[in-house]
Amino acid sequence: MAFAAHVASLAAALTTASARAVVAADAEQATPVGQCPRAEAVRAALQPVVSGEDAPAAPAPAPAIEVVDVGDAFRVTVNGRQREYRDESRDCARRARMAAVFAAIALELPLPQEPAPREAALRSPASTPAAPPWTATTQVEIGPAFESSVGASDDVALVGASARVAVGAGRVKGGGGVAVLAPGGDATIGALTVSHTHVPIDVGVRVVALATRWELSADAGVSGGWLRMRASGVDGAGSATVLEWGARAGAVLRYRAWQRLAPFIGAAAQVVAFPSDLYVLPRGVIGQAPRVWLSASAGANMGF
């Protein structure tokens, strides 16, 4: 049984190589960062491939295999072929299965025709669906958005679309967003009916927390915006445009349903440092533009 012999050889090699690997420092680190997965777990993940048969020891030289834990990712090297998988949840059992599968593929082992062993290797003991590797360094979120004001002279409701970009491989990413929002209803300020058009923009950082398929992000940054107000209701009514700036904080929840695509919902608050005084000549100030914008959005998160 050639297949069983190869697997046995691989498991033997792994015992040595992985034991070395789990204590080996990453090339860019001064000290080891962990033992996830452990060599025993990888070897165990390979056992189902043997299909329960006793395999003779392989006469061929053992292949060079390394599995290096680098914190929120792990790196598998088999005969010089290397692959790094992100796994911020540090699911060691899952890591072991993924390392075993990569090793088998890299060594071009003649896998059996029936899919059962490989599927079993990928399946968790509790049959919980494993999240696909999420290695994207650029994430784009696009979707419809709703915005409402707080602290304005009257309630303002806007609807439109938003887009956000997050760039970075770790838990902390840089990014920003923009939205285009049109009146969902008119505000009443004194005798005026005012419709708002708002284009907020922001740049800042995103901190990501991950729990298997669910990913929660917190955003914070500086914001600006273009706010146009069109008045009606009195003779001589017109429009005015102001530029606003301030700070923004938000949260986004994603469900990693597919390799590169995840639905998301998000909410944010933008505080305007100096909201504009709204005035009518000759009466003077009749109100104030929104001091706080609350927004909500939903849509698709795409990874690249």
């Binding site: 005026l192 005012v194 017109g238 429009s239 100096f274 005035y279 009518v280 000549l281």
Partner: peptide, 22 residues
Amino acid sequence: AAIALAALAATACTPHAQLASE
């Protein structure tokens, strides 16, 4: 906006928006 951003401080500079003139 330019003044405020340059200063990076909460200086009092309230913009005005004229919505109508009677």
